[in-house]
Structures are given as structure tokens and as C-alpha cells.
Design a protein around this nucleic acid. Sequence first.
DNA 1: ACAAAAGTGTTTCCAGTACACCCATGT
DNA 2: ACATGGGTGTACTGGAAACACTTTTGT
Lengths: 234, 234
Amino acid sequence: MTEITTDLYQVKEKMYVATDCIIFGFHEGKLKLLVFKRKVEPLKGESSLIGSFVRLDEDLDVAGRRVLKEATGLENVFMQQLKSYGKKDRDPGYRCISIAQYALIRIDEYDEKLVEEHGAHWYEIDQLPNLILDHNEMVQDAMYQLKHNARYKPIGFELLPEKFTIPQLQILYEAIYQRELDARNFRKKVLSLNVLKKLDEKDKTTSKRGAFLYKFDYENYQKLLTSGYNFEIA
Amino acid sequence: MTEITTDLYQVKEKMYVATDCIIFGFHEGKLKLLVFKRKVEPLKGESSLIGSFVRLDEDLDVAGRRVLKEATGLENVFMQQLKSYGKKDRDPGYRCISIAQYALIRIDEYDEKLVEEHGAHWYEIDQLPNLILDHNEMVQDAMYQLKHNARYKPIGFELLPEKFTIPQLQILYEAIYQRELDARNFRKKVLSLNVLKKLDEKDKTTSKRGAFLYKFDYENYQKLLTSGYNFEIA
DNA sequence: ACAAAAGTGTTTCCAGTACACCCATGT
DNA sequence: ACATGGGTGTACTGGAAACACTTTTGT
């Protein structure tokens, strides 16, 4: 009996290459992860990241973008390779190496229908369900990478809507670093980077007074980058 | 005519997984890279990193260690995954994804015969020959990673013999960062990390007075790591 | 008037940097 | 005695961190 099942789990004469996407979003002041329900055996119905085999005629990064688009409808978002996972028995079904890639998306922009079709849900980063295979490890590694990267590149902006307030940005950074930051020092710091364009609009959804909206200034960021600037935040 | 050759170069019905090793060493005050001569067509005789396909029954990191051992005779050295390279046309022969791993070895410990058999030579990091495929990119990425890592983890020690002097360590860091460091500040900094054991011996090969030898204190390093210590060097 | 979030400056402290001289020893 | 690299201390500076009150406005 078990023999037959085991056989099914042992198609290991061939090397497969997959990519798995760690999709971060930011909503209601919380850093969140998009978690899927696995639709195929083995481990059908379990929580997992979304992934796919890399096609023969497809660049690795393109495969990641394809998966992301299939799952969320989003294109042209921040996506970065994380690490390869290659333990020989990491997947009971195949001999499969997976290259994990992580994406930062604007949670107000994704295609809800698509996500629903995939049986996906957003989970707060500190309330994640158990994931299959080595996906827990991937998420942990991605969190570490995100914390690290957020410190030296202004990638936090990728998670916010185009227009955002400084308090919003601070809450995001607090969610990434998982600690509180001083509002005065934070404001001083981000403004001193010279990559924010202040707008003439206010966001009044969170206070009566309203907070000024800002845009990220990509041009100035590029200019400063090439001139060797230090972007350490918080 | 060309058709036939092209055909040879187009065995792309299958996905291959390889690993390439970026092997750093430190000798005579210079940071060096071990460069190989490719032994098989296509591109036979060209300069390249050493690599291998990952075996079906082999963990990814184990594959890297196997390659390193085959080329240098060394085991148990520092080795770390760098990045996956997955452009669909990165290799004219196969549809092949390569996971680059970089190693830091003690240049006085490797097996010279083995290296010779492989037609390998050490090149100073700023005098590298052109390498095949995307290997130049791999080396660049590895250099970047090495600079970055050396700043936050004391991995520099992996490149030195077990016993080393502080001036030696400084020269190594200068080679990694490719800039000069102040001797007093450097000494202050590394000693303040509390991960060096001073020995009662001196190395007199570079001066009449002699410089005290030190060992890296792995136990203390582990202890400090878990207590959340900042290891930024230089 | 008051509640609730936005916005603003100053002081303290530490770590990075710059910098110049004495020490030990083999020749 | 002297040349050569090893080893040491101090003053300065700039950025990080700590810290409390005023402003705006919808209710």
C-alpha cells in the first residue's frame, strides 16, 4: 500500500528547476505575505508559496514575473532573486531545485479576482500558517533580506501607493524592522535623503489635521545613486 | 555548414543545473582568483570558472564542495551561495541554470598538483583575463558580495592562515576594499571585536621587530553573535 | 473645548576619522 | 647607528538617539 504511494513520490530521474515567489504587501499598518493553497498532489490543500517550473525558453527572472502576474495580475513591480534551495530531498515528488524570488507589491493594486481563484490569502507576517516543504525557510530568509535591503536601498516605497505620507512610511519601516522608531528622527532622516517630492495634497483619512502626501523622486534617486550616496534608513 | 555547428550548440530540450565556483585566495598581499582553462567544447581552452552539473542525488551545496575539492583538494572551507544565473541563452550548449558559489581558501593549503592538472592559475583580482559566458559577471557579483560580507562578518579570517598578524589582516582588508586603511584605527577596531586570541609567538618574516601572531576565536565569536553584536569592520 | 494625529529643534553621546611619534630588532 | 616595520593615544567631527511641546481641525 504505502509502496505505491511512495512510488508516486519518487519521480527523481530528472532535474527540475522551479521558482517560488515570496510576495510581500503592506496593508493596515501590517506587513503581509500572500499565501496560497496548493492545488495539486502531493500536499494538495496545504499552505504554500506560489511557484512554477522554469520553462526551457524563459529567463529565470522572467519566470518569476510570469508567476507573479498569473497570481496577482501585476507587472513591473519590484522583484529580486533571493536564494536557491537545492537539498536533494527538499521536494518529495521531484528532484527539484527552486530559486526563490521575492516581490514587493502595492496591495491596493493587485487583481483580487485572480488571487481568489488561486485560493490565496494575505497573512500578517507574524501570524503565518505553516508552509509546505522548505517554504517557511524561504520566507524567513526573505524577511531577513527585506530588513537588510530596506536599510540601504529605499525599497520600502515599493510597498506603498504612489502617494504616501511620512507617518505611513514610518509605520511601514516599523513593520519591516519589527520595532518602533522615533517620529522626529525618522522624518529628519528620510527628508535628508532628498528622494521625496512633497505634494500640495493632504491625506485626511487618518487624522483631522491631515498629513502631506509625498511621491518618491526616482530621477533624483538615480542621480544621487551615481554620485555615491549613503541611503541608510533608520 | 554553419547549420551543423549551430545544431551542436542547441541541445536545449532539457534543463540542466550546474554550479560554478568562484575561488578567492590571498597571497603576497594580493587578493586572487583561481581561473581555469576549459577542457571541453564548446569554448575549449578559454578561461573560465570551474563548475559541474549538480547530480540528482546531491545537495546543491554539496555539489559546490565536491567541485572545490576536485579542483583544490580542500574540504571544510568557507563557501557560500552567491546567486543563480538563469538567462535562457547564457550557455550556447545547453539550457542551463548555474548557481554560483564562492569560496574563500587559505592559499597555503591547497593541493598544487590538482590545481595544475586542471590548468588553473591564480590571477590578481584586478588583472583577470576575460572569462567565458557570464563568468565575468559572476566574479563581479562575488567581489561585491565579498566586500559587503567582509564588512559585517569576520570572513576575512577564512583567507588567512590559522595564525596571522594584525598587519597581515589589514593588508587583506585593504585588498578586499581596494583602498588603504589607517593602521591605528584598524587595530583598534578589530581588537575591540574581541574575536582575536593573541598568541605568545611572533612572525618575523616581514620585520626585524616581529609582529605578534593571533588566532581567530571561534567560540567567542559564536557567543557574541548570539548576543547580537555588531561586527562591522573598517 | 477637546481629542487625535502631524509636525518641529536641541542636546547628548558614541563611533569614525585623522593624525605623529616611539619601540624593538637584525644588520 | 640606522633602517624597517610594529605598535600606541588623542582630539575632532558628524551622525544616531533621546526627548516634549505646539499645531491643526473635525466633532
